[in-house]
Simulated assay, not measured.
Amino acid sequence: MIIFPMVIVFSLIAFVYFKVFQSRGYGPAQRQLYGAKASISLGIFVLSFGVNAYINYQTTTAAVIGLIFTALGAANIYFGSRQHRHFSPLAKEEKQQTA
């Protein structure tokens, strides 16, 4: 399947993009918001890597590694989205105060 390698590449590019913008943020809430977006992108990367490993190499070792990566990726996505929901209104308020 070609879909998982494409998701892996795009999520890795998004991770680097958000990490660069995290260092360029204009306030602490904005930096945390970009960090949360980077965490979600990293979670998508790890999750899709785990699913891809399981699908392509259907062995017991690949199943164990795939399950571990899938669990870690899902946890990263979950906690990153919680962090994003928390810091999104704070970043908007911070942006309005500076503008």
Rank of each mutant, 00 (worst) to 15 (best):
S88T: 10
K37N: 15
L72F: 09
A29V: 03
V46R: 01
G25E: 05
I55V: 14
P5S: 07
M6I: 13
Q96I: 12
K37V: 06
A53C: 08
R31Y: 07
Q96K: 14
V51D: 00
S41L: 02
Y17K: 08
F10E: 11
A74S: 08
V51I: 13
V7Y: 02
G66S: 06
F45Q: 01
V16D: 02
L42H: 02
G73N: 03
A75F: 15
Y54E: 11
V46C: 00
S23E: 12
P89V: 06
Y26M: 13
R85D: 09
Q83R: 11
F69N: 06
F79W: 08
V64F: 10
Y78S: 07
T61N: 10
L42I: 05
G50V: 04
I65R: 04
A75N: 08
G43S: 05
S48G: 03
Y17D: 01
L72K: 01
G66P: 02
N76G: 10
G73H: 04
R31F: 08
F49H: 04
A36L: 01
S11G: 06
E93G: 11
G50Y: 02
N52G: 12
G43Y: 00
G35N: 07
T98R: 14
H84V: 06
T59I: 04
T61A: 13
V16L: 11
G35L: 01
Q83E: 15
F18D: 00
V51S: 06
F4E: 10
G35Y: 00
I55S: 12
I44Q: 01
K19A: 06
G73D: 05
I40S: 02
V9W: 08
H84E: 12
K37P: 02
L12P: 01
T61Y: 10
Q83D: 11
A63Y: 07
Y26H: 15
F79T: 08
K95L: 14
P5A: 10
A53W: 04
S39G: 11
I40R: 01
N56C: 06
H84W: 13
R31C: 07
T70C: 11
Y57R: 13
L67P: 03
V51W: 05
T61C: 09
V51Q: 05
I8G: 02
